[in-house]
Design a protein around this nucleic acid. Structure first.
Length: 132
RNA sequence: CAAGUAAAUCGCCUUAUCGCUUUCCGUUUUUUCGGAAGGAGGAAAGUCCGAACACCGUAGUGCAACAUAGUGGUUAAUGGCCACCAGUCGUGAGAUUAGGAAAAGUGCAACAGAAAGAAUGUACAGGUAAUGCUGUAGUGAAAUCAGGUAAACUCUAUGUGGUGCAAUGUCAUGUAUACCAACGUCCCGAUAUCGGGAGAGGGCUGCACGCCCGAUUGUUGGAGGGUAGACAGCUAAAGUUUGCUGGUAACAGUAAACUCAGAUAAAUGAUAAGGGCUUAAUCUUUUUAAAUUCAUUUUAAAAAAAUAAAGUACAGAAUUCGGCUUAUAGAUUUGCUUAAAAA
């Protein structure tokens, strides 16, 4: 279902409860300036992933900068998620944080996003093999 | 022309591809899909004033606290805005004002001066028993006479209840349980009670055994509560644009046309190509001026075209309006001023 480059409302992480739980219980991998917090969970709706993006208010004090970075992050996620997530079947909640201090470009973000997803995939595969 | 001054306006565009969101239609319960239309600003910012709206509070009055302070006007309202007067600054266009009261009281005061109130005194002259006792000079804006200062307390006049859309209202899964109702136990001994046994159910570990609690409990329903979340509040209004009329103006009246964002970990975007605009370069051409020469060449200024660069601001709605303040690459328009110096 995620073959398209879409990123609609259903796929966005919106539940306050889930986000709080994610930050408390979730695990993380990072590829500077990005950090991915993830947690296996279940959804009532017919989606496999819910993803949110976040930028710290302390580092970027203007709303326009935060908006710009979040839009770029959403764009990078949207264009790259299909490649990495099509073979994962368990439902996950994701939160991608921007922890850098400079304003990024889309090209930088895409390359970092790919590295981030690689790390996540390897972490997941080792975890599942350990379970077996 | 240049420099300045006041006010107003704009503040990147086009195409392609991939996306987001609202409404409507196909379409009907949902999902999905397709189509159409809409989708940030002059400050959306700061949250500094004033309102609408909502809830809470509230006899009346006074005190306190806070705010404001020339006169008149304007408005839903204001501490905003407009006009005028006065002071200050500027050659000027203009800018700016913390512009009520010192005959209620308290405080403060540079330099100069003996002294700027509770302390003392210079020179000359006059006077006395004696003494700054008296006058003039001297210092200073102001000298036993008082004055200045209220971006010092204070006084006067006027005004002000508080909290804010995370207000407030409706619905409400789940969880826990103060409450209410109904239903749910048998046997033996003894009888308002007590003792013994069994016992639905619960706990100890998922199961079995075992142990513990056991009607003071259990189940069902209701009520209350109001968390996750949903809906309303929420965008057609002190609305926008244009014209006319009145007014010096702020503004008011009137006519026509128009409907113009509604997100909620928060949409309005990303990429590519091309084009604008600005800046200082380089080169070419033309014009003008100066110098020089047999031809001409050199220098300076202006304009036009080309080349390859760099830059293209400040900044993102969050209940809604009216203001104020602050940030802002660059561009445009209009009114007005210019003493001295230079042309």
């Amino acid at each position: 279902m995620s073959l398209k480059f879409s990123f609609s409302k259903k796929e966005k992480l919106k539940s306050k409860k889930l986000i709080d739980a994610l930050f408390v219980k979730g695990q993380s991998v990072s590829a500077y300036p990005l950090r991915l917090v993830y947690m296996p969970t279940t959804f009532s709706e017919d989606v496999l992933f819910k993803t949110g993006v976040s930028v710290s208010k302390r580092i970027f004090k203007h709303a326009i900068d935060r908006n710009r970075i979040k839009r770029l992050m959403r764009e990078a996620y949207r264009l790259n998620k299909a490649v990495y997530f099509n073979n994962i079947s368990a439902p996950y909640a994701f939160m991608i944080l921007y922890i850098g201090k400079e304003k990024p470009t889309l090209v930088q973000l895409e390359s970092k996003m790919k590295i981030l997803f690689e790390k996540f995939s390897t972490a997941q595969s080792t975890l599942t093999s350990l379970e077996k």
